[in-house]
Nucleic acid binder design. Structure first.
Length: 428
RNA sequence: GUGGCCGUAGCUCAUCGGGUAGAGCACCGGAUUGUGGCUCCGGAGGUGGAGGGUUCGAGACCCUUCGGCCACCCCA
């Protein structure tokens, strides 16, 4: 019981789970590449100030969820809680802000929260950032990218797209005043959390889960009505493009995002199959962020998705990539000279059959136990070397699967014919 | 940070105040001295999360603590 355990909320991903992760990662890699996006790999640790300046000082992420520490030089560093900030930093620092710049990244993120279904302290995000294009065709592109991803992953029926425009910073400030003014009149009808948010972050009241608060919001001013002409036109154009591409969406005027840097387009892909954490993918436009971080003012749009949530969603939808048996061939030997022959033959076979999974039996044991391991390995064939084979210069080839086929069974053949015989059998 | 539920074998769970804590699966060995799967037989594996209390007696009741799950907050 005194053995060391993993940090709470930081989970091991075990061999029987990695195939589904690899499936997701493989699909993502190929898909992003097909849209012309290049991968960027970013540090996990950044200066604390990077996140304070980009995400927003008063967000929960910055206020209480960051893993922040001082290094030996007494610099304040933080384990990245999200990917966009670091990507923007890297784009500025490495002069990547040519137009257009299409990037994607993946990797672990860290937030100090209580773990629950679909949420852990170390979690993984896959994200996309497209810099340099301010027009809504780029918004449409990244959304199309996600829509195609759900199809490729087999979860398109499990997610719906929620879309909104939160306009410019200025428009939001005006709206914020109107919203607060309305809600102040009904302060007593608000739930406790929302009363608190009235001063700290009124826009977040819009996505309150409290039924009474939501009812109250039916009479509240609507953010979409406060958009300036340009933002409204962009939103209309985005909708036209999505309509043309056949991507269904639901306008959610109460959709606001948690991070301060968004403007205009915001969107979320949500599901009802993951318990309380319904957001699988979320993103939006952030035209002010690059300038705010000290780069040449450059518009941007992007999204991030939670890989753990995606994996849960695939499992809920019954998408299960086939977990391959651990071996194709299992090499059994009895006696030390025979093991030498087996080892050498195994190396030759790996030369002859690249990609074939050849597992050597190690650790000795009876023939019976070795054969049992051979069976459990899932291998199609066992190759057996013992005293008899060694004396005769042969090897025994035994089929472990499909043994009802008459052509398959056990045969003893000269070493020299092994490769040729195997080639024929494996081709079936 | 707050709340609810839960910690018994590697895993899934019994036992619900009384003798040495059980089962299935998994694991190891044997039946078959060189042959897997099916069957049968056997074996190993637990300080009952930890600490304290009540009691003649606690895995079970009480308290504390640690851990897990779920939810709130917040978010991917």
């Amino acid at each position: 019981m005194s053995s060391i355990r993993a940090i709470r909320g930081m989970n091991d991903i075990l061999p029987d789970e990695t195939p589904i992760w690899q499936f997701v990662e493989g699909v993502v890699h190929q898909l992003f590449s097909s849209y012309g996006y290049g991968q960027i790999r970013l540090p996990i640790v950044e200066q604390t100030e990077l996140f304070q300046r980009s995400i927003g000082e008063v967000t929960d992420i910055v206020e209480k969820e960051m893993y922040t520490f001082r290094d030996r030089n007494d610099d304040s560093l933080t384990l990245r809680p999200e990917g966009t900030a670091g990507c923007v930093r890297a784009a500025i620092q490495n002069s990547l802000l040519v137009t257009p710049q299409r990037l994607w990244y993946c990797g672990p993120m860290f937030r100090y929260e209580r773990p629950q279904k679909g949420r852990q302290r170390q979690f993984h995000q896959i994200g996309v950032e497209a810099f340099g294009i301010a027009t809504p065709d780029m918004d449409a592109e990244v959304i199309l990218l996600t829509a195609r991803l759900w199809k490729l992953l087999g979860v398109a029926d499990s997610v719906t797209l929620q879309l909104n425009s939160i306009g410019s910073l200025e428009a939001r400030a005006v709206y914020r005043e109107a919203l607060v003014a309305y809600l102040e009149q009904h302060r007593d009808a608000l739930d406790e959390d929302s009363q608190r948010r009235l001063t700290s972050n009124p826009l977040r009241i819009l996505d309150s889960k409290d039924a009474g608060t939501q009812a109250l919001l039916d009479g509240a001013p609507v953010l979409l009505d406060y958009l300036d002409e340009a933002a409204a036109a962009d939103f209309t154009r985005l909708r036209e493009l999505l309509d043309a591409a056949g991507v269904a969406y639901e306008i959610n005027p109460r959709l606001v995002r948690g991070l301060d840097y968004y403007n205009n387009t915001v969107f979320e892909w949500v599901t009802d199959q993951l318990g309380a954490q319904g957001t699988v993918c979320a993103g939006g436009r952030y035209d002010g962020l690059v300038g705010q971080m000290g780069g040449k003012p450059t518009p941007g749009v992007g999204f991030a998705m939670g890989v753990e949530r995606l994996v849960l969603l695939l499992e809920a939808a019954g998408v299960r990539p086939e977990i391959p048996a651990e071996a194709d061939l299992y090499l059994v030997s009895f006696g030390e000279p025979a093991q030498c022959a087996s080892l050498a033959a195994g190396e030759n076979l790996r030369d002859a059959f690249p990609g074939l999974r050849i597992v050597q039996h190690n650790g000795g044991g009876s023939f019976k136990s070795q054969m049992k391991k051979a069976d459990r390995s899932g291998a199609r064939f066992a190759l057996i070397w013992g005293e008899d084979e060694l004396a005769a210069g042969t090897v025994t080839l035994k089929a472990l699967r499909d043994t009802d086929k008459e052509s398959l069974g056990q045969q003893s053949l000269p070493q020299a014919e092994l490769e040729q015989t195997l080639r024929a059998l494996l081709a079936q």
